[in-house]
């Protein structure tokens, strides 16, 4: 036993991150009465599902999967979402922005406005409907400056608001998920992962991803230094020059605000090679709605954004 320990006294970095995430998921199960795991079909939440399998099998997940569907998702992603939930045999709850619009709780200023920021409303409605006391999400601290200080167990008040000045100190690995009725905890098990860690994990675990993560030809126009996909929701404007390029998506989200990057990477290994040498941060390259201001993410989080 000691020889094995001397040869390998500590865990490799992915093993450490995995063990931490499993520990966090089990704390949610141990401390919260009615949690949910947010599953979008995106790569970060796909990692969460694998981590949940590792945390809870041979038992069932102690939470349902929840997707807040903006209605502006790529079909491939939605099909993947449904298939993955079925394969796992776990319950998937879908709540749509369209429901909120029908109820009148979401009002778009213009029909083609980005629906991303309105997701918070539908999420809060789902939290209320199912009385979820915790929502597990795949956000990472390295995504954005305002996330660098986010807790792993992040407290939201009854309005779903995140107050950067009123977060609980988080020490050791002792998490405090206590909340009063109506309050909510958001939990981020892969807080400490970088984009590269996620890709390395996907490779190691041979996780299947929606096809739009890999290079494919797609008609796009160049706008503000970013590629804008040409889709029925985001048609080319007069004067736009439509090109068909080999692109892949680094995040999947609302069609109207998620830009692909030019890439020839057809597989995970090629994506890792690109990620390891990439010169643009994930959100900078791909979020059309984050560009407005340095503080825009923080603003949205205060409003209840995930």
């Amino acid at each position: 036993m000691t020889t094995a320990l001397l040869a390998r006294p500590t865990l490799a970095h992915l093993d450490w991150l995995e063990a931490e995430a499993i520990h966090i998921l089990r704390e949610v199960a141990g401390q919260c009465a009615n949690p949910a795991l947010l599953f979008s079909g995106g790569k970060d939440s796909i990692c969460l599902l694998r981590l949940a399998e590792k945390a809870f099998r041979p038992g069932r997940f102690p939470f349902p999967l929840l997707h807040i569907d903006t209605g502006h998702n790529y079909d491939e992603v939605i099909a993947f979402r449904d298939r993955r939930a079925a394969e796992l045999g776990e319950r998937l709850i879908v709540r749509t922005l369209a429901d909120s619009m029908a109820r009148g709780s979401v009002v778009l200023r213009t029909p083609d406005e980005s629906r991303n920021k309105h997701q918070s409303v539908t999420l809060l409605e789902a939290i209320e409907e199912f009385e979820f006391d915790a929502c597990i999400g795949g956000a990472r601290r390295d995504e954005e400056k305002a996330r660098a200080k986010e807790r792993i167990f992040s407290f939201r008040d009854a309005f779903g608001q995140w107050d950067p000045k009123n977060q609980r100190p988080e020490l050791w690995d002792l998490y405090n998920a206590r909340a009063h009725r109506g309050e909510n905890i958001r939990v981020f098990p892969i807080s400490n992962w970088t984009e590269l860690d996620v890709w390395q994990y996907i490779e190691r675990e041979q996780l299947e991803l929606p096809s739009i993560y890999f290079a494919h030809p797609r008609p796009v126009v160049r706008r503000n230094g970013l590629l804008q996909p040409v889709t029925p929701l985001t048609p080319a404007r007069d004067g736009d020059r439509v090109e068909t390029l080999s692109v892949r998506f680094r995040t999947v989200g609302d069609i109207t605000c998620t830009a692909p990057v030019e890439s020839a990477a057809a597989g995970v290994a090629a994506i890792i090679a690109e990620t390891a040498t990439t010169t643009i941060t994930e959100r900078g390259a791909t979020r059309l709605d984050d560009q407005t201001s340095d503080a825009s993410m923080e603003q949205r989080k205060k409003e209840g954004y995930f």
Binding site: T10, A12, H13, W16, T194, L196, T275, A276, T277
Partner: peptide
């Protein structure tokens, strides 16, 4: 800020 980390040759864990 996602880091363009170099790929680990020998993984010496995390500090």
């Amino acid at each position: 800020m996602s880091a363009p980390e170099h790929l680990p040759d020998a993984d010496n864990g995390l500090l």
